[in-house]
């Protein structure tokens, strides 16, 4: 049988999925612990650990900018790709609609993150 083969463009999404999966596996728990629990509950760190001045300075440094951009966008690409496959798993056809929502959402988040970070200047 010689059906014509079409090259899959999955490596792009799979690569972003893998990078985001690795980053969230390594840093996800500790980031949630810091930003979602310790700081809001006033534990471990000073009361104004995430003050406007502190965080703006962090986000204006090129390294901080790169870190925040990588975290937000790669987490979204990781999750988008996984959710895309999970929709297929539960029988929701992985057509253009599902693709637009999962990957489009990640792309939109990436653009918003980039614009926000750029608007804060260096």
């Amino acid at each position: 049988m010689n059906r014509p083969l079409k090259r899959s463009n999955a490596p792009i999404f799979w690569g972003l999925f893998g990078a985001g999966g690795m980053l969230s596996a390594l840093l996800g728990p500790v980031l949630v612990l810091i930003t979602g629990l310790a700081v809001p509950m006033g534990l471990l760190f000073g009361a104004d650990a995430m003050s406007y001045a502190n965080m703006l300075a962090f986000a204006q440094h090129w390294l901080g900018k790169a870190f925040l951009f990588a975290i937000v966008s790669l987490f979204l690409w990781h999750a988008g790709h996984r959710i895309f496959h999970s929709l297929h798993d539960v029988g929701i056809h992985a057509g253009p609609g599902a693709k637009a929502v999962c990957y489009g959402g990640a792309l939109l988040g990436t653009v918003i993150a980039a614009l926000s970070l750029l608007s804060m200047g260096f």
Binding site: L5, K6, R7, S8, A10, P11, W14
Partner: peptide, 8 residues
């Protein structure tokens, strides 16, 4: 391997 039927 790299086709739509493949590993991905």
């Amino acid at each position: 391997v790299a086709a739509e039927e493949g590993v991905f």
